[in-house]
Design a protein around this nucleic acid. Structure first.
Ligand SMILES: [Mn+2]
Ligand SMILES: [Mn+2]
Ligand SMILES: [Zn+2]
Ligand SMILES: [Zn+2]
Lengths: 142, 142
DNA sequence: AAAACAGATTATAATAGTTCTAGACTATTG
DNA sequence: CAATAGTCTAGAACTATTATAATCTGTTTT
């Protein structure tokens, strides 16, 4: 139960980012609520609602800095909108097509086997699995 | 070696789309060159280069109609740009991070096992695997 | 504690990919 | 041939995101 960073300040220090009002507030919103998959505008809305006046540009800057520092992961599923994932461990996702929500699948509960080596050289950096879920439960029928 | 549609005309007929000059030309560009992963603006450029003056709006319309007819699949990897995949069989992708190119992995050469049932109900419509490939070959070293 | 500096924030403009609109065009049908 | 429904297109609009450049703030130096 020992979270890697007890508070936002430590987290920013470890990432070598100045602990500004905006970054502290965004870090708290992101990391003090368990795992989340949040879009930039969504987080901006939460910040404003929490009386933290921060510009959308800063939200984007901060999210990308956090990704660069390994605190967040960017997940792209649909064109035109990125999700930022506070879970940076090895894991995969359910994508609920009707609601647009993401949900984690622990990395060790899925196995991807027999991945061939990349034909054009290079090394595998990551394997992303997205399980697309549709609403109706059509059971084994064309 | 029997391709599903010998020519673009048949293909459009089967999809119940009027065989207009633009759609015929786009169908030929898409399907007469083997499997491809092409973005809308790219295809538009090819059409213009091939002396087929077609508007970008029509390229988008046509691509989406083809997706609706099951002739194409839309693949989203990066924010802000969709790829349209002429391979609609069950398969997965290598994504080369430096060049932005996609390459097919046959569906039967990868196995995704132990996928848990979706926690919030619904049924699995598809499982997409993206293998991200980076240039340098860093072999089993942190 | 001031001053100086580097780094951060912000309003605003710009960009990129995509979609919308509404009028002109065209394939199909009788 | 109409008549009709479907299609195409230029251009505007839209959305998410990024760039700009001036202002501000956290940190370091004096
Ligand atoms: Mn990004
Ligand atoms: Mn689309
Ligand atoms: Zn996740
Ligand atoms: Zn493919």
């Amino acid at each position: 139960m020992t979270r890697p960073f007890a508070n936002a300040l430590e987290l920013l220090r470890a990432a070598r980012l100045r602990p500004t009002r905006q970054r502290l507030a965004l870090a708290r919103l992101l990391f003090e609520k368990g795992d989340r998959h949040v879009a930039a505008e969504e987080l901006h809305g939460e910040a404003l609602a929490a009386q933290v006046p921060v510009s959308l540009a800063t939200v984007y800057n901060t999210l990308h800095q956090f990704v660069g520092a390994g605190l967040l992961r960017e997940v792209v599923i649909n064109p035109g909108r990125s999700y930022f994932d506070t879970n940076v461990s090895d894991h995969h996702h359910f994508f609920y097509e009707d609601s647009g929500k993401l949900r984690d699948i622990p990395g060790d509960s899925i196995a991807v086997t027999n991945v061939p080596p990349p034909p054009d050289g290079g090394s595998i950096r990551r394997v992303d699995v997205v399980v697309r879920v549709e609403k109706a439960a059509s059971k084994a029928r064309s």
